[in-house]
């Protein structure tokens, strides 16, 4: 069981780097969705036994992260823009190298913090921290509004993994609440981005600065 978890976590670390190195928005959405799908499987393989509660949580997460979010985003991208490039503020190689630094920071954090009472390994915490940091990096360094939504969802993936890793037993409701939050957020942002693109015919967040009086 635990080997499977380790492989899964290593794979998701790689996904984070792929997200940082991808030049296409569509590819980013798909990688983000695959990462989310992987994370929604974590409660199934990490716990000792599979209770119905865990099953419900995993299924809901899988449906949201692997299905609804990416579908919304891809539809949004189709409707808003003809440009599919990510357009980062810092280059892709620089993003990858910053990513390595963030990974080192996450590994240090993962080893220092001992939140888990149960048998979860430091690898899970490291991965969760790193996913959160990757999300933040994507939000701060990408020009396109769609990519900011992607970054936000990657961040959410990380928080989800963190929650699963630290307090898997108690808060199914909390988790579902987070998912719902994210759903609403994506919905609202989709509408915002759509209107932004209709109004200004661009989706550069730089343009938002021009709204300031």
């Amino acid at each position: 069981m635990n080997h499977l978890l380790e492989i899964l976590l290593a794979l998701s670390l790689v996904f984070n780097f792929v997200l940082l190195g991808s030049t296409r928005i569509g590819a980013c959405v798909i990688w983000m969705a695959m990462q989310g799908a992987l994370y929604s499987l974590v409660p199934l393989i990490a716990g000792e036994e599979i209770t119905p509660r865990i099953l419900v949580l995993a299924t809901a997460a899988l449906a949201m992260k692997g299905g609804i979010f990416p579908w919304l985003l891809i539809r949004l991208r189709r409707r808003t823009s003809f440009h599919f490039e990510v357009e980062p503020y810092i280059g892709f190689i620089a993003s990858l190298l910053v990513g390595v630094c963030l990974l080192a920071a996450a590994a240090t954090l993962g080893q220092r913090i001992h939140l888990t009472a149960g048998g979860y390994n430091e690898g899970l915490l490291t991965t969760a921290f790193f996913t959160i940091l990757t999300g933040l990096l994507l939000i701060t360094t990408r020009r396109k509004a769609v990519m900011q939504v992607v970054g936000y969802l990657v961040l959410e993936n990380g928080i989800y993994l963190f929650g699963v890793g630290t307090v898997v037993e108690a808060p199914m409701l909390v988790e579902l609440g987070v998912l719902l939050d994210a759903f609403v957020a994506v919905f609202v942002m989709s509408i915002a981005v759509y209107n932004l693109s209709r109004k200004f015919e661009v989706t550069d967040v730089d343009k938002l600065a021009e709204l300031k009086g």
Partner: peptide
Amino acid sequence: VLAAVAFVV
């Protein structure tokens, strides 16, 4: 970067 991830893992 893959090798760096390998090292951290």
